[in-house]
Design a protein around this nucleic acid. Structure first.
Lengths: 143, 143
DNA sequence: GTATATGCAAAGGTTTTGCACAGCC
DNA sequence: GGCTGTGCAAAACCTTTGCATATAC
């Protein structure tokens, strides 16, 4: 069951609907997030874009990310150091990051169902497991 | 089953054993962590100490925390924004932080046992749930 | 044409680093 | 006395903000 990949246009469509403008910078930032295979830091976007679009300013990236997050098309998560951005609704999995070697694995949300139910039942808490990673030791670093 | 509270002396003992020196600054930093009821940010320590021990420098705090973490007596976790330090072995619980109101609750490690077993069995991953918080919506903010 | 978005520059906050001096052992 | 630890100052790093200009609509 493959997902239709999100296209930059659909994000820009959302912007227009809300009365925001479609600028080359915004288009480029969105493309960078889409092309980053998951998640990317704000500064990472700025640096990658600097090559393709000289003159683009980091503050534009920060402001655009804030805006996109506000209208709900992107979200950020914490996978170790600092915020990483991704499209809301994509990237719906939990990160397991190894404290020793830094490698990351993915965990499907399905595997978390029993844990989620426990939190909802016992603590009346609706978890978003994608927001923070889970640290630990991976198979190679365990012993 | 109450735990014996860790005393600054025992930490300083560890320092001495490893050939490090016991200074008033280090003593004060350790006391601040002990007295912080759980966790505290590096800059928080520096600011609180500034009152009791004028002249103490933030860089000393950062360097001391690095050292203490290196020798294993303190650890840090990420509960929302930035690193918070606590004594290794104390504070052994998971934080649930509400993305909406910011309140935090605690979860015992016992409640996580089935989840831990799943990660170990299916992913050969040994999780440290205390390192990152779990984000979500608390009872008051759920609906 | 007008309101919004961008670039630039400056400032803000946190953390790191180099170096000389102080102080623990 | 020697070597480690600290203070100080500066820099590095990331992010935010104010303001004038550019540009999407």
């Amino acid at each position: 069951m493959k997902k239709t990949p999100t296209r930059p246009d659909s994000v820009l469509e959302t912007l227009k609907q809300r009365g925001y403008r479609m600028t080359p910078q915004r288009r480029a930032i969105i493309e960078e997030i889409l092309g980053s295979d998951g998640h990317i830091a704000a500064l990472g976007i700025a640096q990658k874009l600097a090559r393709k679009m000289p003159g683009i300013n980091a503050s534009t990236v920060y402001r655009t990310l804030d805006l996109l997050e506000e209208i709900g098309v992107v979200s950020h998560s914490h996978l170790g150091s600092g915020a990483e951005y991704h499209l809301t609704g994509e990237h719906e999995h939990v990160h397991l990051v190894c404290s020793n070697c830094g490698r990351t694995e993915s965990l499907s949300l399905d595997e978390l169902k029993p844990f989620r139910r426990m939190l909802e039942k016992n603590h009346d808490f609706a978890p978003d497991f994608t927001h923070f990673a889970i640290a630990g030791l991976c198979s190679r670093c365990r012993d």
